[in-house]
Design a protein around this nucleic acid. Structure first.
Lengths: 335, 335
DNA sequence: TTGTAGGCGTTATCAT
DNA sequence: ATGATAACGCCTACAA
C-alpha cells in the first residue's frame, strides 16, 4: 500500500497541496471548515507527514544530537533524562550517539549528526580530542553546548555543569563539622583531570577549617575497584583516618567494603561521604552521605541553553554552574 | 557562509552532480582518477552530504527508533548499549524516545518516529497500551521488534528477551544447593505481571527439589523501598527463612539493609540471591550472588533482529530467549 | 481564502 | 565513464 502524501490528501479534499499544508499547520488564513475537512481526510487516509521532506524544505529537523561516552553511568543517565525532558517539552527529539570514549565512534557520530542536519548538538566532554579538533577546525558546526563539564580546551562554548569544587568543599566541611580530624582520600590518578576540582575543593575546605592537609592524606590508585579496595585498606592501616572523602559514590561503596573487611564500623570508626548521589546510595545497608550533583537539572539546563542558542545563534556564550547539594545520611554522624 | 552542496562540488570539479554522487559512493563505474578528484574537492570545500535530501530520495534514513520507559534503570541502559553497539556496526544511528511510561509521550514519540521515517522501531514494552493499540490499528508501522519483554498483548512481533523463568529457577536451585530449607520472597504486587515468570520459576525449582512452598513464603508489598524494607523485617521475624530470593538486585540491596538492621549476617544467618546483576552488585560490602539477565546481549539481539527484518520484511517472526547466567558471590555460600 | 509553481539536495534512470 | 533530468514530499512566496 502506497505511502499517503500531501497530494493524495489534496486530491481527496479537492484542494491544493498548499491548502493542505497550511490547514494541517493550523494557519489562520484557512477557513476553519476547510481545516476540519482536511484534518478529517488526512486522518481517514492515514496521512503521516514526511519529516525528511519537511526538513529538506525548512532546513530544520527538530532533532538534537547527543554525544555521550556511555549510557550506563548513572550520572550520564540522569543528564540524558534531563535533556530529554526539556527537549521533549519543546518538541525536539534526540539522536543518541554513544562514543565509548572511542575516537572512531566520536567521529562517526559527529559526522553523522552533522550530515543528518541536527538543529543542535550536546556533547558530554571526556577525552574529546577528536571533537575539540573538529570543533575548532571545521567551519560550520551546528549550535553546540557542553554538558556535565566545561571541556578541556574548548573555549567559547556554552555549558551547564555542576560546581564540583563547591561540592567537594561542602562534603569536606561536613566531615569536619561531624568531628573528623584526619580526613583522607583515595585518588585514581588516571582520572586526575576529571577529579581535580573535587580534590581542590576538599583541600580548600580543610584549609578554611585551619587543618593543614597531611602530606599523605591522598592515596593514589588505579581506577578499578580492586585497586581502590586495596589502596583503601592500606590507607586505613597506615594513615588511620577518621573520615574519608570519596570522589564518587562508586568509590564510596568499595571503600565501605574495605572498611567492613577490616571489621570497622561506619560511622563509628570511620565516617564516609561520597559524591554524585546515585540511585542506590540512599538504600545501601549503611545509607551514604553524599553530594548531589544535580544531573537531571544539569541536563535540563544544557538543553535549555542549546535551544536558546538555536533560536538566537548570536547570543553570548553562557557558562552555568549548578549548585550541588549536601545529602546527609547515616555514613556520617551529624551532630 | 552558504551550505556547500553537491552542485558546488560538481561545478568545481567540472562534472555533473550524478558523477559526484556516484564517485562519493565509490561506484566502480567511475574512474578512480575521477573519484580521487571528486573526493579532494569535496574535502576542500567542506562538503557534508545532506542526509535529509538523501533520505527523501532513497526512502531510507539509516536510523532506528527506540522507545524506552526510562534510561535510569541500569537494565535499560545495558539494553540500549547493546542495541547501539549492533546498530552502530551496521551504520545506523538511534533516535531515543523516553516515554516515562506516560501515554502522551509514548504517542508523541511513536508519531514522531514514524513521521521521521525511521527504518525500524525497537520498543521496550511496559504498560504499552497506547502502542499496542496503534500497533494493531495502524496500517503501516515500520518494522518493529520488542526488547526485554515479549509484551502483553502484542502478537506476531519478534522480540529478544531473557528467559526470566529459567533465571529464577537457577537462582532458587542455587539457594537449595547451598543448603537453604526455608526460602522466602518479597513481592511487590503492583508489578505482579512483570515478575510473574520469576515467581513461577522459583516455585518450579522448589517443587523439583521436593520442597513444597510454604503457603506464606511470599510476602506481598508495595514497590517502594520503605515497604520492601518493612516487609522484609516482618518476613524474617515471622517466617524465619534461611534464604531469600529477590526479584531484582535493587530489592536485594534493601533486603540486605533489613538484615543488617536486624543484626543478622549474610550468608551465615540468611543467604541471599538477587536478579539482574546490575553494576554495583559485585562491589557491595557483601558481594551479591545474582542472575545475570544479559541486558547487553538482549539489546544486541533485538537490534540484529530488527535489521534483519528491515532487510527482509517478510521474514518469519522470531522469538529469542537469551539464557540467563548464575553468578555466585558472597551472599550465598556455595559448597 | 486558496491555487500555482519553484526550490530544498540527493539519487536513479536513461541517454550518450 | 559520465551527463541530463525527473523524481522524492513538503513549504512558501506570489498570484489570483
Amino acid at each position: 500500500m502506497k505511502n499517503v502524501t500531501i497530494y493524495d490528501v489534496a486530491k481527496e479534499v479537492g484542494c491544493s497541496t498548499a491548502t493542505v499544508s497550511l490547514a494541517l499547520a493550523g494557519d489562520t488564513r484557512i477557513r476553519p471548515k476547510t481545516i476540519a475537512r482536511v484534518t478529517d481526510v488526512a486522518e481517514k487516509l492515514g496521512y503521516i507527514p514526511n519529516y525528511t521532506a519537511k526538513s529538506l524544505s525548512k532546513k530544520t529537523t527538530d532533532t538534537l544530537g547527543l554525544i555521550v561516552p556511555n549510557v550506563e553511568n548513572p550520572l550520564f543517565s540522569m543528564m540524558i533524562s534531563g535533556i530529554e525532558s526539556f527537549a521533549n517539552s519543546k518538541k525536539y527529539d534526540l539522536i543518541l550517539g554513544i562514543s565509548d570514549s572511542d575516537k572512531r565512534k566520536e567521529i562517526f557520530y559527529l559526522d553523522m549528526l552533522r550530515s543528518k542536519r541536527v538543529d543542535g548538538l550536546i556533547v558530554f566532554p571526556t577525552y574529546i580530542d577528536s571533537i575539540s579538533e573538529r570543533l575548532t577546525n571545521s567551519s560550520s558546526l551546528p549550535p553546540l553546548v557542553l554538558c556535565g563539564s566545561s571541556g578541556n580546551r574548548i573555549h567559547n562554548t556554552s555549558y551547564a555543569k555542576c560546581n564540583n569544587r563547591r561540592g567537594a568543599y561542602l562534603a569536606t566541611e561536613h566531615l569536619i563539622k561531624c568531628g573528623c580530624k584526619k580526613i583522607a582520600c583515595v585518588f585514581p590518578v588516571r582520572d586526575a583531570k576529571q577529579y581535580a576540582s573535587r580534590y581542590n575543593g576538599c583541600c580548600e575546605a580543610m584549609q578554611d577549617a585551619g587543618i593543614t592537609p597531611a602530606p599523605d592524606f591522598v592515596y593514589p590508585c588505579s581506577p578499578d575497584n580492586e585497586s581502590i579496595f586495596n589502596t583503601t585498606v592500606n590507607l586505613i592501616k597506615n594513615f588511620r583516618p577518621d573520615g574519608i572523602f570519596c570522589l564518587c559514590d562508586y568509590h564510596a561503596i568499595t571503600v565501605m567494603r574495605a572498611i567492613a573487611y577490616l571489621g570497622m564500623k561506619i560511622p563509628e570508626d570511620i565516617q564516609l561521604i561520597g559524591f554524585d548521589n546515585i540511585g542506590i546510595s540512599e538504600f545501601l545497608p549503611t545509607p551514604l552521605s553524599t553530594i548531589d550533583t544535580r544531573g537531571y537539572q544539569v541536563g535540563q539546563t544544557a538543553a535549555e541553553l542549546l535551544i536558546e542558542k538555536i533560536n538566537n545563534p548570536t547570543a553570548a556564550v553562557k557558562r552555568i554552574e549548578i549548585e550541588p547539594q549536601l545529602i546527609i545520611r547515616n555514613s556520617t554522624c551529624a551532630k
